[in-house]
Design a binder for these strands. Structure first.
Lengths: 170, 170
DNA sequence: GGCAACTAAGTTGTGCACAACTAAGTTGTG
DNA sequence: CACAACTTAGTTGTGCACAACTTAGTTGCC
């Protein structure tokens, strides 16, 4: 059985939701639901990107790494992790797979032997042309106007920053 | 090395982003960025939930399943997958872990032997009291007003629906 | 110079997400 | 009745995400 991917049931998303027992009446539950909505939207995007990126042989996280490299080649691993907000435990195997696919190479930096520099192969460069139509197809799938996209992105950045700040020591 | 979790660098999120080569000027890239922003926000939420749920011994997806069951016990596996928008390949092992933790039981339905019904154990019921303060702590972490939460949730639902519709056959 | 503190990358182990598949039960139709 | 089509759970394999840890190299400070 496939996921509820292209959702057969619109899913009332935790319908009336957790009834109020020990907590105050209502508003609180909405915060669970906004996280759920975020989670869902993120996965729905993932599904669309999966379709669009299939021909390129990339997953979405791999595509993000390629975006970073297409914008500026010759980047240390650390910087990739920072830009994509990913742990080394995620980035290392991700880069290993991209290397195995022949799209990038990794070389120890000469001036700092701790650092590893990531570089595009010719094949990795060439893939850029094939990826040219990706953003357009995604834009089409969202059906959002430029203003809506900008606004949503801004809200999400503020939310992320707020959550990060709240998640420090407690 | 830990992730960029409580983000040490605010990360300009693919800074100027993929420069325009073969595609038209600018707007397109924003759609990549909105997905990235979504992805980031979702993971930032995950990090906060991880902190808050640690005492309960639950992950966020496990907490979602418990929410469904606390609202209405005695639910078939299929319904859990629909409500949470998850594949059986995700739900099955997830339920297996909750069962191993002693929070739920699974029983073959009598009237339809294909179906499996999920039921809370006493321990699973009891956990509800411990979870009472979760939504409040999350709400606090977001720093959003009720109106903002409602609006954001609504936008995300519309976006998800649109993406689902676009991801069918093409 | 020597050594503690730090930094960069990688590894290990756990859990989520999904595609593709299997097994078992149910339903519809001739 | 019989059998194809469908439905429900579950399994297998791959990849992402992160905590906790390891290894190797650098820097600061005495």
């Amino acid at each position: 059985m496939s996921p509820a991917s292209p959702s057969p049931v619109p899913s009332p998303a935790l319908s009336p939701a957790l009834s109020p027992t020990l907590t105050s009446p209502e508003p609180f539950v909405l915060d669970d639901m906004v996280c759920f909505a975020l989670h869902s939207a993120s996965r729905a995007f993932g599904s669309v990107y999966r379709s669009v990126l299939r021909d390129l042989g990339l997953t979405y996280p791999q595509y993000l790494v390629m975006l970073v490299l297409w914008e500026r080649d010759d980047v240390p691993v650390k910087r990739i992790g920072e830009q994509l907000r990913l742990d080394t435990g995620t980035v290392s195997p991700l880069l290993k797979r991209l290397e195995a696919a022949g799209l990038i190479r990794r070389e120890r930096s000469a001036e700092d032997e701790r650092s590893v520099t990531v570089r595009l192969t010719d094949e990795g460069c060439a893939l850029r042309a094939g990826a040219a139509e990706v953003p357009g197809r995604i834009a089409e799938a969202t059906g959002l106007t430029l203003a809506e996209v900008t606004d949503l992105r801004e809200r999400l950045h503020r939310l992320t920053a707020k959550l990060d700040a709240a998640d420090l020591p407690e």
